[in-house]
């Protein structure tokens, strides 16, 4: 992890140089990798069957070697008294919402959505994020300089920063269990979920299955697949019995989140403007973004 200023300068100088060097061929080495494969994988989260057992939280931590309580402790439901967000110690969390029209409350697992056009990737000035062929949006610690633009850019407020680590804090977010899927295994949360709330499959198949569910059980679902169109589409998609804003999802448009930052950033690198200018400019964008976000969701944290 090289967060020191010197390393940052080195990285960006290298990136700038390589961009300038190969600009005519249009293949930009070192720029973020953004593959949008037709066969990319995804997860369909059917919130109507989730029971809030939080085994997904346990499995996620265990598979990522993060400290966790023993599995029996996850039966404790008092955690639902507070609304939680994924953070540096938990890449995924389950929240519970009241459901006056049903027998049971509504439980909703949240984690990175693995956007098709990730705002985190666009916002990152050093290309620490990549969209992999299987749909994963991956964060690469070697490149990250700790600027936290990704946190501001993400429309789902996912990337978390290890504030409690003084020396080499990382950005933490769900990595779609990239190490496991590479080996042909299922993501840990998908594998453990007793109810198969989380269906893993090709995104196109999942979309078809989701539409079929809505068609067959119109009284069970709202006619909306979150992630089909939101911010340009996401690999993780949700079905719900309630409007998504009622289960704490932000209201989002169909366009990929901030095309602005992407344009600015690439423009800057193309013309090789010194990093200090980037800081000033992006600082402004960040501030704008932040303001916009606050007016959008009010007090979500």
């Amino acid at each position: 992890m090289n967060k020191s200023r010197r390393n940052f300068l080195k990285t960006s100088a290298f990136m700038g140089a390589s961009i300038a060097g190969v600009a005519s061929t249009k293949t930009v080495k070192g720029a973020p990798k953004n593959i949008l494969s037709d066969d990319r994988m995804g997860v369909l989260v059917d919130t109507t069957v989730c029971i809030g057992c939080r085994k997904c939280e346990w499995a996620c931590k265990t598979s990522h070697n993060m400290p966790t309580e023993p599995i029996e402790k996850y039966d404790d439901r008092t955690v639902f008294e507070k609304r939680r967000r994924p953070n540096a110690n938990a890449l995924t969390v389950v929240n519970e919402f009241e459901n006056p029209n049903g027998k049971f409350p509504i439980d909703v697992k949240v984690q990175c959505m693995h956007c098709d056009h990730p705002a985190c990737l666009s916002a990152c000035i050093v290309g620490a994020f990549s969209k992999e062929e299987n749909g994963t949006v991956l964060w690469n610690g070697d490149k990250c300089i700790g600027c936290r633009y990704c946190m501001v850019a993400c429309p789902f407020q996912i990337p978390a920063f290890e504030f409690d680590k003084a020396w080499s804090p990382d950005i933490k977010k769900c990595d779609f269990c990239f190490d496991r899927t590479k080996k042909g295994e299922l993501p840990a949360c998908v594998e453990i979920c007793p109810m198969e709330v989380l269906t893993y499959g090709k995104k196109s198949d999942l979309l078809r299955a989701a539409k079929e569910k809505i068609r067959l059980y119109p009284e069970r679902y709202v006619d909306h697949i979150l992630g089909e169109h939101e911010v340009g589409g996401t690999s993780w998609m949700y079905l719900s019995s309630k409007e998504f804003t009622q289960i704490d999802f932000p209201k989002l448009g169909k366009n990929p989140a901030p095309g602005v930052t992407e344009a600015i950033q690439h423009g800057i690198f193309a013309y090789f403007i010194p990093p200090i200018a980037i800081y000033a400019l992006l600082g402004g964008v960040m501030w704008l973004n932040k303001n916009r976000k606050q007016t959008e969701h009010g007090e979500d944290e």
Binding site: L44, V49, I51, G52, C53, K55, I71, E72, D75, R77, K103, F104, C193, P194, M195, E196, T199, Y200, G201, D205, L206, A209, E212
Partner: peptide, 28 residues
């Protein structure tokens, strides 16, 4: 992926009553 797998199918049958029974979802 249209129909739940066996593990999902089992638990979906059990949990409707068991969850109501105890108000919780204790695996134990």
């Amino acid at each position: 992926v249209n129909r739940p797998d066996l593990k999902g199918a089992y638990h979906r049958q059990c949990m409707d009553c068991h969850r109501e029974w105890s108000g919780g979802v204790e695996c134990s």
